[in-house]
């Protein structure tokens, strides 16, 4: 039992080492500040427009579709370098000779990115402050909105890291990630024309469909399971892609 505990903490320490480096990379490079600034500027402007139009309901419901759509653009810019840059600069050769499994490397990178993503969301808490000042009494929808954003962003990041593992070029990785996310986003739009059999399956796979409930304060286990399985499956595939790189190199 003790041995299991120590090997588990060693495993976590390995993930932590990778996460530490990635976070360091995020915070000293200008990318995240530029991306976050643009995101917050556009999102804030639209939030202002909503308020200025005299939107009465004290919740984030009106802004969330905009925020979610902006994340389609923001997340690929955060994830595109993750593996592609290590490939193009050659640092992957050293990284993959450290006593870490490929899964630890992928998990560490994922963890750092979700933390960086959460940091970019922090300034949006000012919207919450505004809503609270204007007399919100129901905190539930505010909490579930952020839970939804984290799950949505988390699954976007999973798709993004997978795209980054597929190529040496950061630009190509970004384009692939954006394309994949956009496709998964608009799947729901097609559901009406595909007939009664196919429609529910296609709309189940749409990243957008599962996000809607969170804004109204409804947490459905089905939605959480959907996002978690999206995250797990993209990370598993990413790990396989990274592993197979050892054979292709």
């Amino acid at each position: 039992m003790k041995r299991l505990a120590s090997s588990t903490s060693a495993y976590a320490a390995g993930i932590g080492a990778i996460a530490y480096r990635e976070l360091y990379g995020y915070l000293v490079a200008p990318t995240i500040y530029a991306v976050a600034s643009v995101f917050l500027l556009v999102n804030g402007w639209i939030f202002y427009l909503i308020l200025a139009q005299g939107y009465a309901e004290a919740s984030l419901k009106a802004i969330l579709p905009t925020t979610a759509f902006l994340l389609l653009l923001v997340v690929p810019m955060l994830t595109m370098r993750l593996v592609a840059e290590e490939r193009s600069s050659g640092t992957i050769e050293l990284l993959m000779t450290f006593p870490l499994t490929d899964a630890q490397v992928v998990l560490g990178k994922y963890l750092a990115t979700i933390l960086a993503f959460a940091l970019t969301l922090v300034p949006t808490l000012s919207y919450v402050a505004i809503i609270l000042v204007h007399g919100a009494t129901d905190y539930g929808p505010l909490v579930t909105a952020y839970l939804g954003l984290l799950l949505l962003g988390g699954s976007f990041i999973g798709v993004g890291i997978l795209a980054s593992a597929l190529t040496r070029s950061q630009l190509v990785a970004g384009v692939i990630a954006f394309g994949m996310l956009l496709m998964l986003w608009v799947l729901g739009a097609a559901s009406g024309v595909l007939g009664p059999r196919l429609s529910p399956i296609i709309s189940y796979l749409s990243l957008a469909e599962h996000f809607q409930n969170f804004g109204s304060g409804v947490v459905d286990v089905k939605d959480i399971v959907f996002y978690l399985s999206a995250i797990v499956s993209t990370l598993v595939v990413t790990t396989r892609v990274v592993e197979s790189g050892r054979w292709r190199e």
Binding site: A13, G14, G16, A17, I18, Y20, R21, P99, L100
Partner: peptide
């Protein structure tokens, strides 16, 4: 420091 962490 990072390499030290990675190599525990």
């Amino acid at each position: 420091d990072f390499v030290g962490r990675a190599k525990q």
